[in-house]
Design a protein around this nucleic acid. Structure first.
Lengths: 121, 121
DNA sequence: ACAAGTACTTACCCTAAAGTATGTATATAT
DNA sequence: ATATATACATACTTTAGGGTAAGTACTTGT
């Protein structure tokens, strides 16, 4: 899970800035490249780990669990594992994760509008 | 402006995924750490380069112009330079940049809700 | 006995992003 | 003559993130 060096200017700056700016705070939580994508795929309902893998073919397994763990640690998603073999694990949005849906929706809306009409400058 | 190596798996994956997933498309444009923050500060009105610098103390000058240039190239912001000395340059949101305001607003809203009430799981 | 499926984990390496530090142009103020 | 302010540019280094490849556990199917 890649340790973070303590005395790093970036980290200090980020922590400082996070307290000041709401958008910075959000970027702390979902700022990674894959996180909004994962949340987007969970927005349509609970998904098994393997379903997410298929839904996001570009992500590697390492990245997928890594970000799932981080999202879980930040309490944006909830992991549910059935005690069976082979494993059956589902992920779903927590209530604060659901609070992010307006963000995700707004992104999707903008993507559609912006993609078809780049002439608007 | 840091050249990008062509034959990189990440880049290929990203381009592929960008065509499929709207959120991925958005992350291509504003996925950097600083970009949403810059857009947030421009959302309250036009700002000079030096004003942005003061508004976002954690950002280095290199990062600031680098992202401003990228945002300009993606036509999300507009640069206006008065031909005076010392230079007077203002940045403002383009119309498609303004289209991102719902995203930024949703982020800010979530940040306030989430920060004061982490108990909601 | 062996392969297959699921949900991971771990070690090692490479790249893109970010930081540090310094330099540039030009006019006004002292 | 020198300093100051603005809006950058650029070389050089570090770091966090991401990729590759392999392995684990445990059961069912053949």
């Amino acid at each position: 899970m890649t340790a973070i060096k303590e005395s790093s200017t970036i980290q200090e700056n980020k922590q400082y800035a996070s307290a000041q700016c709401p958008v910075t705070y959000v970027m702390e939580k979902i700022g990674g490249y894959w996180k909004p994508i994962i949340l987007y795929h969970l927005s349509t309902g609970d998904k098994r780990y393997s379903e997410l893998k298929r839904a996001i073919p570009a992500v590697t397994e390492k990245m997928l669990i890594q970000h799932l763990k981080q999202l879980e640690a930040d309490k944006l998603i909830i992991r549910e594992a059935k005690p069976v073999v082979p494993p059956f694990v589902t992920y779903k949005l927590s209530s604060s994760g659901k609070g992010l849906l307006p963000v995700i929706d707004a992104m999707a809306t903008w993507a559609f509008d912006n993609r078809e009409d780049n002439s608007t400058v």
